Amino acid sequence: MALAAQPQMPRVWRAETKPHKFCPGCGHGIILKALGEAIDALNIQERTIFGCDIGCSLLSWDFFNLDTIQTHHGRTTPVLVGMKRVRPELVVVSYMGDGGAYAIGAQHLVSSAVRNDLVTIIVVNNTQYGMTGGQMAPTTLPGQKTETTPYGRDVKLTGRPMLGPELVAAVAPPGAYVARGSIANVVQLKNFIQKGLLNQIEGRGIAFIEALSACPTNWRTNAAETWRFIEKEMAAYFPTGELRTPGEVKNGQVGEGTPDAPEH
């Protein structure tokens, strides 16, 4: 019996590649749907370039009806920055996991933020390296068990989890947009991504959005445990919300391209 109502998918999605290749319960599909809906809302499909990293994020290589490039691990952002500089009329999206962004790709992230590059970067934070078996990542929580921390992450030995948006917000010039969303609040996440795309389109500066995500396969959690971990444990350490907006006053300066900046 056919369903009376068919699910609404983004127009920019490539239908023949669905169902997608991600594991059951993975948050990537939710985040990519939010990105697709944001692209649809802004009607920028014809000029958007999507770049994905090595790792679980590479499974998005055929997700969209967009010109797409898959890069070496951690190098997605500089590749997209190069495209933007050669073709400034394009809208470029750099999509990667927390390992690609905060480990091997950390130097590119910091440099891009300092330069205030006109790119939109989306980082999926699931607290571990998903594709290679669930090892400790820069975002693994204190005490969290992984394949390489079977007794829990010891912050005295490995340091504390990386706070990516907080780092970008601290070093980026005025005009940057920085936010952290979660698959637990898809409407808010889509809003953050859409604002990030607009920040690039309007020439204000870099846009950086981290998305709290799920990996029940490597977490070895059921549905209830998965959502508790995202909504309680992850959100307690990685608070969601906007960290920087273009109208924010920083060091006595107002973000460029924002005519009605709020007073502080």
Results as ranks from 00 to 15, higher is better:
Ala2Glu: 09
Ala5Trp: 08
Ala5His: 11
Gln6His: 13
Met9Arg: 13
Met9Trp: 09
Arg11Ile: 11
Val12Thr: 01
Trp13Phe: 15
Trp13Cys: 14
Trp13Ala: 15
Glu16Tyr: 08
Lys18Ser: 12
Pro19His: 07
Lys21His: 11
Lys21Ser: 13
Lys21Gln: 13
Cys23Met: 09
Gly29Arg: 03
Ile31Tyr: 05
Ile31Asn: 12
Leu32Ala: 04
Leu35Ile: 12
Gly36Ala: 08
Ile39Tyr: 04
Ala41Asp: 12
Leu42Ala: 01
Ile44Arg: 01
Glu46His: 14
Arg47Phe: 01
Ser57Ile: 00
Ser57Thr: 13
Leu58Ala: 15
Phe64Gly: 03
Ile69Ser: 07
Gln70Asn: 13
His73Pro: 10
Gly74Ser: 00
Arg75Met: 11
Thr76Cys: 14
Pro78Thr: 14
Leu80Glu: 08
Gly82Ala: 08
Met83Thr: 10
Met83Gly: 06
Lys84Asp: 06
Val86Gly: 12
Arg87Cys: 05
Glu89Met: 02
Glu89Lys: 12
Glu89Asp: 15
Val92Met: 03
Val92Glu: 01
Ser94Glu: 01
Met96Gln: 13
Gly97Asp: 02
Ala101Cys: 06
Tyr102Ser: 11
Tyr102Arg: 03
Ala103Gln: 01
Gly105Trp: 09
Gln107Gly: 12
Val110Met: 10
Ser111Asn: 15
Ser111Thr: 15
Ser111Ala: 15
Ser112Trp: 07
Arg115Pro: 08
Asp117Ala: 11
Leu118Glu: 07
Val123Ile: 11
Val124Asn: 10
Asn125Glu: 02
Asn126Val: 08
Gln128Phe: 10
Met131Asp: 00
Met131His: 02
Thr132Gly: 06
Thr132Lys: 07
Met136Pro: 01
Met136Phe: 07
Thr140Met: 02
Leu141Gly: 07
Pro142Gly: 05
Thr146Cys: 02
Thr146Pro: 00
Thr148Asn: 08
Thr149Val: 10
Tyr151Cys: 05
Gly152Glu: 12
Arg153Val: 02
Arg153Asn: 03
Asp154Thr: 01
Leu157His: 09
Leu157Lys: 14
Arg160Pro: 00
Gly164Asn: 01
Pro165Arg: 06
Ala169Cys: 09
Pro173Arg: 03
Ala179Cys: 08
Ser182Asn: 11
Ala184Val: 11
Ala184Phe: 06
Asn185Ala: 10
Leu189Thr: 12
Lys190Ser: 04
Asn191Trp: 13
Gln194Asp: 05
Gln194Leu: 13
Gln194Pro: 06
Lys195Ile: 00
Leu197Asp: 07
Leu197Ser: 05
Leu198Ile: 13
Ile201Phe: 10
Gly203Asn: 06
Arg204Leu: 02
Arg204His: 04
Gly205Cys: 04
Leu212Pro: 05
Ser213Trp: 03
Cys215Glu: 04
Cys215Pro: 02
Pro216Asp: 09
Asn218Ala: 03
Asn218Met: 13
Trp219Val: 00
Asn222Arg: 00
Asn222Glu: 03
Ala224Asp: 09
Glu225His: 04
Glu225Cys: 03
Glu225Asn: 10
Thr226Ser: 12
Trp227Ala: 05
Arg228Leu: 01
Arg228Asn: 14
Ile230Trp: 05
Met234Lys: 02
Tyr237Glu: 01
Phe238Ser: 00
Thr240Glu: 13
Gly241Tyr: 04
Arg244Gly: 00
Thr245Met: 09
Gly247Trp: 07
Glu248Ile: 01
Glu248Pro: 02
Gly252Leu: 04
Gly257Gln: 01
Thr258Glu: 12
Thr258Arg: 10
